[in-house]
Amino acid sequence: MLHIVIKTECYKLKRYNILWAGVALMLLSVLLTLFTSIANDGSVWDFAYLTEQVIKNNMTMIFPMCITLIAGYIISREQTQDTLKNILTVPVSFKWLLTGKLIVCGGLFIIFGLICSFFTIVAEFLIGFPGFGVPLAIKAVVQITAVNFLLYLAVLPIIVLTSQLTSGFLVGVILAFVYGYGGLFAARNMTLANLYPITASLGIVDYRSYDEAVHWNILMCICSLILVVGISVMLIFGIKGQELKQINKKSKKVVIKKGW
């Protein structure tokens, strides 16, 4: 049953214009990074540093918000268009419907990571920062794409919590932005950075490991994200049947009064 839900959701993606907003946000992340490169702050810019700054901007400002906006929109479509009650007449629970949508979103955000990597390489060709090479380009694609997917896992509890609220993803966007921006403060302390799910995604890809001040504990980072995913799974199982009850209440027949 789950594979049918996933297949159906993949077919629906081509109808979602909001996906172009995700592409625009990936472009914005790179443009914002290029804008900061003109600041005379003493930083020496090369392709590796460009990649690092794109990853940092994605983490703190762009991607958590992008993830919650698009995933929340995809999940809430069944409620805003009042089609969820029809879908649940088929032998598929809201739990499996939500799980299928989340799996599709995970694949979608991997694609967004590849798009962001493409924009980063295009920016490199346009600006011409030194140090570009095929090995570094491959590393940039892997790091940007992996971090974006791991950020999706880090934000997953917010998406699940707001999934049952009509237009609740807008609240989730605000929470995700604050959550992502908190990574700036968590990064100031390596112990906290290894535990905080947003910054733990950087540790898994060995972000800036050449810096003597950066000491990642990969095991701790992985455990942090596993805990977040575990919480998300428990939340999904916890909402089983609740949505159907809400729909049944809304679907009660209107009693027509007799007489004039």
Rank of each mutant, 00 (worst) to 15 (best):
R208G: 00
G72I: 06
Y207T: 02
H215P: 06
I198L: 04
L227V: 14
Y181Q: 11
Y179P: 07
T83P: 12
C105F: 00
I74P: 02
S167K: 10
K257G: 13
N194F: 06
V30G: 03
T145N: 04
E52D: 13
V142S: 06
A71W: 03
I247P: 02
I218P: 00
G128N: 01
L50K: 02
L28D: 02
M65R: 09
Y152N: 01
L235S: 01
K139H: 13
I67P: 01
L126Y: 11
G230N: 09
S201E: 02
I198R: 04
M59G: 04
S163V: 01
F112Q: 01
P197D: 12
V141E: 03
C66I: 11
L69A: 13
H215T: 14
I158P: 07
L195H: 08
T191K: 03
N40Q: 15
T33L: 01
M234K: 10
C10E: 10
W45G: 05
D46L: 07
I236Y: 00
M61I: 14
N248Q: 14
V54W: 07
I256W: 14
I174V: 15
D206T: 07
A24P: 09
L153N: 07
C66D: 10
R77P: 00
M59P: 01
L219H: 08
V5E: 06
Y16W: 11
M59T: 14
V214W: 04
L28M: 11
Y152K: 01
L202T: 04
W216T: 03
Y179C: 06
A193W: 05
A200S: 15
H3R: 13
Y181H: 12
F63R: 01
L19N: 08
L25D: 02
L156M: 15
Q143L: 08
S251F: 13
L84I: 15
Y207G: 05
T80F: 11
M220H: 05
G238V: 06
P91D: 12
E9N: 13
N189F: 11
F149L: 10
N194A: 09
C221F: 09
E243I: 03
K139I: 05
A48T: 15
K101M: 10
V92Q: 04
S209C: 08
E243L: 11
H215W: 08
G259P: 06
L227N: 04
L27A: 14
V229W: 05
F119K: 02
I62W: 05
Q81H: 12
Y196K: 02
L151R: 04
G131Q: 02
L98Y: 04
G113V: 06
G183A: 10
I110F: 03
I38H: 14
L19A: 05
V228A: 07
V255S: 12
I111K: 00
I38S: 14
M234E: 09
V233D: 06
I198F: 08
L165P: 04
I236P: 02
I74C: 09
Y73G: 01
I121R: 04
F47W: 05
S29M: 05
